[in-house]
């Protein structure tokens, strides 16, 4: 069977912050033959929709927005002439570092790589995975998907908002939705302490007098076609609902910021062993997985709090991959 094949020394799966940083550092370590494969229409990954500032202080000494941080790396990619493919999905990765890819222009083809850097990022925990009881109306989004509607597409998911989960994405969206004119009624979290950074609790909730209710979660969703409200319930130390503490809050939008899950389906297919604690590949100090020549970095490895840390980690993977292919 003759399938179009592309050969490359280093295949980087994902053109978000991890993939971009890894590519740049591999180049700076001497590698030249590489290919970044990105499923979206442009490079930048999740940074494209993170229009808020707070990135880059550690890495570049200045506070940048997500797109500005991406811009620095994309400029380097262009300056170095590092090859990349857009609108291309990797559907399979084998232990021998052969990947199957598909896009509109080339159809289904193969990429044979000397080394692979896994940089696919993560997905959000959905309502279904949280098993929140009640009806299934529209109006329920993970915070990141809502962020995409607002920041990339220009649509408002809703007007009267409740946020479940005080992770940074939820806090950031509390501020964003408020600035765009929505009424964020409250943010609640099942844990007794906020999951996001204190600075985000301050500038996203306190700045706008949005209440933060800890040890509190959503126990039921109400609404026929569109969300009409949620039942909040307090929880005890064992995170069990406290009977009698139920409170109905009317709203038309529920944003979920309840955890990120590294996206390792491709990794598993390649024989990479996943650490059940992090959800990402088991790696050595060079970020090499148990499969020789396959490296991992960024949120696919474990969920990072700051993109600066992603870049630091991706640098290691990029250099290690360059060394591995003999650059």
């Amino acid at each position: 069977m003759s399938l179009k094949t592309i050969n490359t020394d280093i295949l980087i799966i994902g053109g978000g912050p991890a993939g971009l940083s890894a590519a740049v550092s591999a180049y700076e370590a001497g590698a030249r033959d590489m290919l970044i494969v990105e499923r979206e229409e442009t490079l930048g990954g999740i940074l494209k929709q993170c229009i808020h500032s707070g990135f880059g202080l550690h890495r570049f000494g200045e506070e940048l927005t997500g797109p500005e941080y991406a811009h620095i790396y994309i400029s380097k990619i262009e300056e170095y002439g590092i090859p990349f493919m857009l609108d291309t999905m990797i559907t399979e990765l084998k232990p021998d570092k052969t990947a199957t890819a598909v896009n509109s222009a080339d159809g289904i083809f193969e990429i044979k790589a000397g080394a692979v850097i896994l940089a696919m990022g993560c997905r959000e925990r959905s309502r279904g995975a949280l098993s929140i009881a009640g009806s299934r109306p529209s109006g329920i989004y993970t915070a990141g998907t809502a962020q995409k509607y607002v920041n990339l597409l220009g649509y408002m998911p809703g007007k009267e908002i409740v946020i479940l989960g005080s992770g940074d994405i939820g806090l950031i969206m509390a501020r964003r939705m408020t600035l765009e004119g929505a009424n964020v009624k409250l943010c609640c979290d099942i844990l007794p302490v906020p999951s996001g950074l204190p600075r985000n609790v301050e500038q996203c909730l306190n700045d706008f007098d949005i209440p933060l209710r800890l040890s509190c979660t959503v126990s039921k969703i109400h609404g026929k076609d569109r969300l009409a409200g949620v039942t909040l319930v307090d929880v005890d130390e064992s995170l069990s609902p406290v009977p009698g503490s139920e409170e109905y809050v009317s709203c038309d939008t529920l944003l979920l910021s309840c955890g990120l899950i590294p996206e390792n389906e491709l990794s598993r297919g390649a024989g990479v062993i996943i650490d059940s604690k992090t959800g990402g590949p088991v790696t050595d100090e060079n970020l090499q997985t148990v499969v020789e020549g396959i490296f991992a970095c960024g949120n696919v490895h474990h969920v990072h709090g700051l993109v600066d840390d992603v870049s630091i980690q991706a640098d290691i993977a990029g250099r290690a991959a360059a060394l591995y292919v003999g650059a």
Partner: peptide, 19 residues
């Protein structure tokens, strides 16, 4: 004071990030 970050809609409906 606060750094303000938001988006703007262009004539053609494109969304651009601003600060």
């Amino acid at each position: 004071v606060r750094t303000l970050t938001t988006t703007v809609r262009t004539e053609g409906g494109r969304i651009a990030a601003v600060k």
